[in-house]
């Protein structure tokens, strides 16, 4: 089962490697991991997308909680939550493809944020499925490069992860 784990961690050097080291040492999967400081600069928030049986997910959250610098851990996928990911795609945009790319961007409500004579950079946010759908909707031969941020997640409504 796919799970989205959010955690708050002290913004110290080495904190990221403590988390990633834990996953590799114990053989847990990381599908994506994002991290950046929160509104309180002394703390970072991480979103980790992982897969595993219920037993493994229980161990993952317990092991994360055990790290001395981890302040709080929540499996946000246990209840209603929102996931978003950012993707930047540089595509070839010449001749008839130029108009086609513009149209596809509009359909997916993406934005073209860089324009040259031969290329566009298309910015798209959404959940993983939407980003995947966009990639499969366009001609792969036109894709010059793609960069994805990994998933950010937040619980809906009253479910708040804060100290």
């Amino acid at each position: 089962m796919r799970h989205v784990i959010s955690l708050l961690i002290e913004n110290e050097s080495g904190a990221l490697s403590r988390v990633s080291g834990l996953f590799s040492a114990r053989g847990y999967n990381i599908e994506s991991l994002t991290v950046a400081p929160t509104e309180d600069a002394s703390m970072s928030r991480m979103t980790i997308v992982t897969t595993g049986s219920d037993d493994i997910i229980e161990q993952i959250t317990k092991q994360l909680n055990k790290l001395v610098e981890v302040v709080k851990v929540v499996d946000i996928s246990e209840a209603a939550h929102i996931e978003r990911e950012l993707m930047l795609t540089k595509v070839r945009a010449t001749g008839k493809d130029r108009e086609e790319m513009k149209r596809m961007a509009d359909i997916f409500r993406a934005r073209i944020i860089d324009v040259t004579d031969t290329s566009y950079v298309i910015e798209l946010t959404g959940n993983q499925a939407k980003l995947d759908a966009f990639i499969s909707a366009i001609d792969p031969a036109l894709v010059l490069e793609t960069v994805r941020s990994g998933v950010c997640g937040v619980g809906r409504g009253d479910r708040i992860l804060k100290v």
Binding site: S13, G14, S17, R18, G21, A25, V68, E69
Partner: peptide
């Protein structure tokens, strides 16, 4: 040292 010992300490500091 902090990197080498990270998996075998409760915690470490530089």
């Amino acid at each position: 040292t902090v990197g080498i010992t990270r998996p075998c300490v409760k915690h470490n500091f530089l």
